[in-house]
Amino acid sequence: MVFATILENHMNRNFLFCLLFVLPLPAMALLNVTVIQGLDGEAEYGKQFSAQVKTVFSAVESVTDKNNIVVFSGNDVSRDKLLAHFDQLGKTLKPVDQLLVIMVGHGSYDGFEYKFNIPGPDLTGADLVNMLKVQTTKLQVIINTSSSSGALLDLLKGDGRTVITATRNGEERLATRFGTYFTNALEDSAADINKNNAVSLQEAFTYAERMSKDYFENQGQLATEHPVMSGDKATQFVLARTVTGATDTSDPELAQLLIKREQLDISIEQLQLRKDELPADDYLNQLQQLMIDMSLVQDSIDQKGQPAGEK
């Protein structure tokens, strides 16, 4: 389960390789997810927000235990409850754990302060800063799909945190479409660009950003929102798996095949890093051989009923 949330880049694959086969038992990292659904304002938005939260829940359920997912919606949402919740998380989560916060709703910005609209006092940008400041987890992702959410960028970015906002600043105040597209990405196989049966944060953002841009272009309208992502952990962070299936690690032959596939992944990435140095023909010949090897390994894995892609 833990490994589903990591790691697609070369360094981390090596790390995974070591964890799996060199170290006896690695410390188990935990992905904790908090979903906050704000006020709808209009019934239509209420339907949209509820649908988005439902999709998010279903998606993250594929990458973490549902006990690690907390949803605040309707009357459950209040500033005090949220502050208390994050205070508690700050005490219980470990540095190796991961924190994902997803905020769905309307936001506002008066030129000085961002506010996320919830029942009772709104949640301010300063509240969010304080809520995240007390967290010890190294890997934090915050996704805010509300209007004016871009006002949070400067406040929240840094400290290795990955921040996604639906708008590029606080001045983009109209209700956004980004949230719908972002959650669509979690269940649309087209979002899975690298076909590894998992949708990473990067893939979901790319998908939603494109859909949002296409929407305004197709409507012949000036875009009223420009999604932004800051931070560099997006490709590593898996939000959803589109194919689920447990690995039968008791089969030594399958384990060897998985190791072989992992090694091939590393070799492919290493070759891709050298692409510009190699003559084009050499590069393609080497790539072809690696891909043939990968395809043959996957054939063997398939015969054992293990899905392709995400490990």
Binding site: I193, N194, K195, N196, N197, L264, D265, I268, Q272, L284, L287, Q288, M291, I292, M294, S295, L296, Q298, D299, A308, G309
Partner: peptide
């Protein structure tokens, strides 16, 4: 065919239809 297959797999090394076609063509 080869050029585009490799381009597909370069983006998505685990893309099964492309893997299968690669094996078929080679």
């Amino acid at each position: 065919a080869r050029r585009h297959l490799l381009a597909a797999l370069e983006i998505a090394p685990h893309y099964r239809p492309a893997q299968k076609l690669l094996l078929e063509t080679t």
